[in-house]
Write a protein that binds this DNA or RNA. Sequence first.
DNA 1: GCAGAGCCTCTAATTTAGGA
DNA 2: TCCTAAATTAGAGGCTCTGC
Length: 401
Amino acid sequence: MREDIKVYVIKKASKKFLYMKYVDPETNREITRSTKTNRMKEAIRAAGRWESELRSGQYKGTCRTKWEDFRERYEVEHVSGLSPETDAKISAVFNMVEQILNPKRLAELTAANISRYQSELRHLGRSEQTIKSHTTHLKAALNWAVSVELLPKAPKISLPSRAKGATMMKGRPITGEEFERMIACTESIVKSSEKASEWRLLLNGIWHSGLRLGEALNLTWDNPDKLQIEFIRDRVMILIPAELEKGNRDRRLPTIPAFAELISSVPESERTGYVFNPPPMRHTESGRLVDEQVGRIITKIGKKAGVKVSEKGGKVKYASAHDLRRSFAARLALKVPAQQLMQMMRHESIETTLKFYVGQDADNLSDLVYSAFENGHSRDFLRDPAPIEAKSPPQRVDVKG
DNA sequence: GCAGAGCCTCTAATTTAGGA
DNA sequence: TCCTAAATTAGAGGCTCTGC
């Protein structure tokens, strides 16, 4: 309760209504409001109400912040600290807001106007996911505005729920035969046998490591600021600095024997700089392609090889770099338990990892069941269940740790 | 005509914050 | 402490423009 706030009724020359004013003890600024009456008795009552709201902290003033000022502050003070990808997305959302709502002041972003914005996006044919993504970025921005006192209160915004029947995975793990087809098609896409060998090295690298595309392109032989190869006897580990890892923590990632074999095939004299250097199809100034360009060429190879990973509404999606990662996970899921797969894939949540087990097809599941019985488990399976021993309670697995 | 670049949409994956 | 919602990050691909 702020006892130092006192609201007075004043009369302004040439004004029809009586006004009330107080001096903000923190900023020393004089704040004035109309009482919306010319009767002194009612004006005093209004001033009393306002004083009580101000003292109890319940009063939320009106926001006069200009939209462009807010946008500039948000982008400079908050967004500049986020990743460039997020920066680009927030910028795209704000551009669309300006196109549809064209707000002059931040306060115009009310719940009603945001609902209209969602409806306009729907009208423009945007998917529910995109509307949700736009809304969450707007919500985050408005919450930030409240936190820096540019806005007294954030509007209540409802998020569209996930569309019925929407899939959780965009692609699928590809088979060994499909991968062979992609390898075979590489040369016809990159149009040079010399370049093709570099591209095949990259494809095999992702196939045998499950690295994300960006990570694979940042893998080096000797740079500790990037992902780095570490040889330990006949094994290969990958050291991942926190800033280059989606999980945002330093990692030491073991690899499978096939990856170690692939890496060891590179002559020692060539083990410097980036491990994977897929060359551009024609000369460029930097001589090195960015992730986005590499991803597009891999998809071209997938298309040439005819490896379809999804087909929705007549729209075909072909194998991409991420499908090679999915495939690595699916193959490893047949060999190792979920806990170890989770570590290899660097998932933070076991839920993400378990999708690779749920996704196993009936043949794979059948193989697993039969191999379990071949190991002499069939007799145990037919016996009566053993009495439950009073042991310590089952261990909970903390996936967030 | 095609590669490359940039902007944007769409989706998936992950971390963080906050409430029960 | 656990669960859920919010926030953030990343990858893929469509579209358009530009330059060779």
